[in-house]
């Protein structure tokens, strides 16, 4: 647990065989763990928004669609096989209950839907998810085993 690799917001890191990937405080953001169990290659993405409509596409990891696609591309470059890659996701909470407005509250929900859609399109199997609700999550992802763990405020850790 000493060799933590921190994934920031709109960021992605890869680790192979060893190392603990961690991304802190996912609120409406979604953390996506991608794993090829055969070569033990793990990728953790922290996306903030659903679909990339930026003209320059400077930060692919900010968005669900381009983030997942770019990570899959980089994993395949390192020898991962698309058919073996599986996913686990967490996040997409609604942090504030603001009355009388649309987009503010449901960015989390839109993120979850965009992640589901992109994974489906890319033929990646979604193994487990812990999404929605109103609580922030810190997500840890162990490259040696593919096991993920969620830490929340005032709750027990969830291993999945």
């Amino acid at each position: 647990m000493n060799d933590k690799i921190v994934v920031g917001i709109a960021d992605m890191k890869l680790a192979q065989r060893q190392g603990m990937l961690i991304t802190y405080a996912l609120g409406s953001c979604v953390g996506i763990c991608l794993y090829d169990p055969v070569i033990k290659l793990a990728g953790l993405i922290h996306i903030m928004l659903p679909l990339n409509m930026e003209t320059g596409r400077k930060s692919p990891m900010k968005y669900a669609d381009t983030g997942i696609r770019e990570t899959l591309r980089q994993m395949e470059q390192k020898g991962a096989s698309r058919s073996r890659i599986v996913a686990k996701i967490a996040g997409g909470a609604r942090m504030f209950d603001v009355p009388g407005n649309g987009s503010l509250g449901n960015i989390g929900q839109r993120n979850i839907e965009a992640v589901h859609m992109t994974l489906k399109r890319e033929n990646i199997k979604l193994l487990r998810e812990d999404v929605g609700g109103t609580v922030a999550r810190t997500l840890l992802f162990d490259a040696s085993s593919g096991q993920a763990c969620i830490r929340s405020y005032g709750k027990a850790e969830v291993i999945f």
Partner: peptide, 15 residues
């Protein structure tokens, strides 16, 4: 809301 700072701050950021 009472929760992790990172998650609270990303609300205006994500918007």
């Amino acid at each position: 809301a009472v929760d992790m700072q990172g998650a609270i701050l990303t609300v205006p950021m994500a918007e």
